[in-house]
Amino acid sequence: MSDVAMEIEKYRIYMFLIGTGLAVVIFYYYIIYLYRSEKKGKKNYEKYGRLALDDELDSEILEKNPKSEEKKKGEDK
């Protein structure tokens, strides 16, 4: 193996360890964050599961997309 290749190999290992380590930490932090914020009542994630069930055009919208509203107003004028 040439020197350049060795060098690349080294960076590759560093990048792998750092990247994967970071991903694992973020991921576990995220799991804790999800469950904790729901327990505290800050967020309710499960309501989004209803999106598949209430999917008629005239079903109630959970959270409006502001962009689509702007467009609607524009059309009205």
Binding site: F27, E46, Y48, A52, L53, D55
Partner: peptide, 20 residues
């Protein structure tokens, strides 16, 4: 969920499995 009329069991779990 649509066919059964039951919302997905856990939205959080679906998030986690997606990114995983």
């Amino acid at each position: 969920p649509k066919e059964s009329g039951q919302a997905v069991y856990s939205y959080k779990l679906s998030l986690l499995s997606f990114w995983g």
